[in-house]
Amino acid sequence: MLQYIIRRLLLAIPTFLGATFVVFFIVQFAPGGPYDQQMNALRKGQGAEGGGSALGTESMAIPPSQLEALQRYYQVNEPIWKRYLMWLGLFPRPVNDYLAEVGEERNVGGGYKVVARKDAASGTYNVYGLDNPTTPLDDWFVDPSQKPNSVWLYQREVAGIFTFDFGDSFRYRKPVTELISERLPVSMQFGLMSFVITYVVCFYLGTQKALRHGTKFDVVSSSIIFIAFSVPGWALGGVLLVILGGGSGIDLFPTGGFQSSDYDNLTAVEQILDRAWYFVLPTVAYTLGGFASITLLMKNS
């Protein structure tokens, strides 16, 4: 038993890495990804400012400084292996990017100003704080820029999947961890309810099927659960909304949300019933497809 657990744990490592690489590859290289969408947004923005038509928008050139900033943000010029390690949180990535002119003061947030100077002897650039203009700052780095007499000032940070820093949501413009924390309580309630219902129903159904093996009840119930297994949850949810959510049938259950507007004014029992009322349709759509495997497991165990 111990060897089996160890093998499973060791197998989880390449499985996890393989899954992360597939996700990373799709996000990075599939057409219409975040980088492509930002490029299109910049083109449309330039077209809108110039008063061009929709046809001319696609041919509008993106300013080099904006294009360079976008390429640095998504690290598109870095090797694929380095971008993957940055995404995992195993390699430091540039953060707090600022385009600055050499020898000119640059505000880097919080009222703190720095200046980049070129060492005449070595030809390298160093960053100095105005409070100590003789000692280079160790936590600031410099990359050359396509803009003449300008450089990119940045810091480094190890952040990614392994550090539970998932960045900002491209859609909601908020940290992903914040979005997860907002939705986690509802997801946990929904998952717990689905878990209990699934195992209670499947335990009883699997036991009855085992006791009545080969009977009409066994055949009919198997047909029903396999039909339910073949229907995607999202499709079943849409049908339930139309029939029972007031789409064109009975207006019995709410079509969205997870609690009533006066939820805070209800008693504890009323709050439980109110939440359960909102959870009926999504729970049915989510759990019905899983009845087949668990029921057969109960029957054959």
Rank of each mutant, 00 (worst) to 15 (best):
161 I>C: 01
239 V>M: 11
110 G>M: 03
142 V>W: 09
177 T>C: 00
174 K>Y: 02
278 Y>T: 10
254 P>H: 09
168 D>G: 01
251 D>K: 11
40 N>C: 03
183 R>D: 04
206 G>L: 11
128 Y>N: 09
183 R>W: 01
172 Y>V: 02
31 P>C: 10
228 A>C: 13
191 G>R: 02
278 Y>V: 13
233 G>S: 14
279 F>E: 11
293 S>Y: 01
284 V>E: 02
34 P>A: 15
182 E>V: 12
105 E>L: 06
66 Q>A: 03
212 R>L: 15
90 L>I: 12
21 F>G: 03
70 L>F: 02
42 L>G: 00
265 N>K: 14
275 R>L: 15
269 V>L: 15
159 A>K: 12
85 L>W: 11
85 L>H: 06
178 E>H: 00
33 G>T: 09
169 S>T: 03
52 G>A: 12
122 S>N: 07
292 A>R: 04
126 N>E: 07
60 M>C: 05
201 V>C: 02
199 Y>S: 00
141 F>V: 06
274 D>L: 13
113 K>N: 04
117 R>W: 01
84 Y>M: 08
254 P>T: 08
27 V>T: 14
281 L>K: 07
201 V>W: 00
261 S>V: 15
101 E>Q: 10
52 G>Y: 14
112 Y>R: 10
219 V>F: 13
152 W>V: 07
294 I>Y: 00
148 P>H: 10
207 T>P: 03
249 G>A: 05
23 V>D: 02
199 Y>A: 00
